[in-house]
Design a protein around this nucleic acid. Structure first.
Ligand SMILES: NC(=O)c1ccc[n+]([C@@H]2O[C@H](COP(=O)([O-])OP(=O)(O)OC[C@H]3O[C@@H](n4cnc5c(N)ncnc54)[C@H](O)[C@@H]3O)[C@@H](O)[C@H]2O)c1
Ligand SMILES: NC(=O)c1ccc[n+]([C@@H]2O[C@H](COP(=O)([O-])OP(=O)(O)OC[C@H]3O[C@@H](n4cnc5c(N)ncnc54)[C@H](O)[C@@H]3O)[C@@H](O)[C@H]2O)c1
Lengths: 206, 206
DNA sequence: TTTTAATTGTGAAAATGATAACAATGTGAA
DNA sequence: TTCACATTGTTATCATTTTCACAATTAAAA
């Protein structure tokens, strides 16, 4: 299987999300321009993405919604589901934990870690919070491959090292710290303050 | 002033952040490769960005850190500061509110809005929470031009319409809903679930 | 002073991503 | 049945972003 462009992958996630809605609204087929309208993008982009995943619609009938959902599932999901852990159960971390689980069938947070004894060895939103010194052990034992990093920024480099040793293959970094990860780990930066400043700049610009 | 590429703007924010650290560590000049190391990017990219903002370093001495910080400030900040509002003071909204203020000198959240009477007409983290039906009035009165959207997803289209009428020029959207905004509003999507699925895909891929 | 080596600045190339343009085609209207 | 046209699939073009490659320069070493 070839690797899809990053932007296409992002859009596939969104296609699937809105397709679920349209199917529960009773629709069976959808045109590229309809899907495009739902996501505020262009119909060409929809068609191109669908081309890239090797699916074909029916001329003048559009795309079969169920087929499309299932094909996107084949591409994005793993059959057994992807397991994630969240490190740092503070304000942001616990907000994400509560919010996220249940959103996606094949992707769930199954462990949390913190250093604060008030939080460890308790259950939050159905998820066990372990002391952070058990990070490697638990991640290996449970086969976790995705980590969400919501510790204080100065802690993140150390944690990342342990994560790498534990076999984690993808990290979502919410801390405002540029992380150094080995090549085989996919890193997604999620830096809110930077994004805010960027928006402020483009406001200023017009 | 010409408009800088989006990616360059993002990096400028990050340059400034790490430059503050290096200056408090007593350094006065910095080489492109040093700055690059701090952010895990390439030295060429640093040099090109600095070229784009029209600054010049000294050969074999590097860039003057104070000059660079101040120039980046001229580009990113407005002298009077940019005012932001947050709409929806739930889990995520209040987490952001507490976190954000104080982070940037020229960018602050000065008003919050909610629909819940338990939350309105109170002060959170030093910020007044208004009932959402006063959105337009307050935003206009206070000259707010940036909005952070953390309401339930189904509410966001309506809110966006009011925001547009109120003169808001930039929106950070944390809701998983594709928004339709007029051309003169800069929209930044911040869709966590999509990002998580993307990471999961790239984990699966290698 | 002369040489060496490190560093900047930048044009050109490569990679990634979005849009335009249009041929192909089959559905439904006439 | 025939025709018009809506819609797909795809190639070619355009735009943005990153990387390469290297000339220019000068601080420090010799
Ligand atoms: N709060 C926000 O809205 C927000 C937004 C953007 C980014 N962030 C970033 O997210 C991170 C967390 O922010 P927060 O507001 O939740 O902070 P917080 O202080 O509320 O939470 C941090 C948590 O990490 C735990 N922790 C500390 N050291 C640890 C370690 N070594 N191992 C494991 N856990 C450890 C703490 O006990 C605490 O529970 C910070 O890096 C912050 O910059 C927060
Ligand atoms: N919690 C998270 O970590 C997280 C992460 C990513 C995205 N999100 C998104 O952020 C949004 C908020 O999530 P949350 O977890 O904070 O939910 P929440 O229910 O805790 O907060 C929503 C808040 O919005 C208020 N509200 C409802 N309708 C409103 C209206 N018309 N005008 C103004 N305020 C209104 C509610 O009173 C509540 O305070 C959602 O769209 C969610 O999908 C949340």
């Amino acid at each position: 299987m070839i690797t899809l462009p990053e932007k296409t992958v992002e859009r596939l996630c969104k296609y699937r999300r809105v397709l679920y809605n349209t199917i529960s609204a009773g629709k069976q087929h959808i045109f590229s321009h309809e899907l495009a309208n739902l996501l505020q993008i262009t119909p060409v982009q929809v068609r191109r993405d669908i081309m890239l995943i090797g699916y074909s619609g029916t001329l003048r009938k559009g795309y079969d919604i169920k087929d499309l959902i299932s094909l996107i599932g084949n591409i994005l999901d793993t059959p057994e589901g992807q397991k994630a852990a969240i490190i740092g159960l503070g304000n942001l971390g616990s907000s994400i934990l509560t919010y996220f689980n249940g959103k996606r069938a094949k992707l769930s947070i199954i462990a949390a870690f913190d250093i604060d004894p008030q939080k460890t060895n308790r259950v939050f939103g159905g998820v066990q919070c372990y002391p952070v010194d058990r990070l490697e052990e638990v991640i290996k034992a449970q086969g976790i491959r995705l980590a969400i990093l919501t510790v204080p920024a100065n802690q993140s480099p150390d944690i990342v090292e342990v994560l790498a040793m534990s076999g984690v293959k993808g990290i979502m970094n919410f801390t405002p710290k540029a992380l150094h990860v080995p090549d085989n780990i996919y890193l997604e930066e999620y830096d809110m303050v930077t994004s805010m400043e960027k928006v402020a700049y483009f406001i200023k610009q017009n």
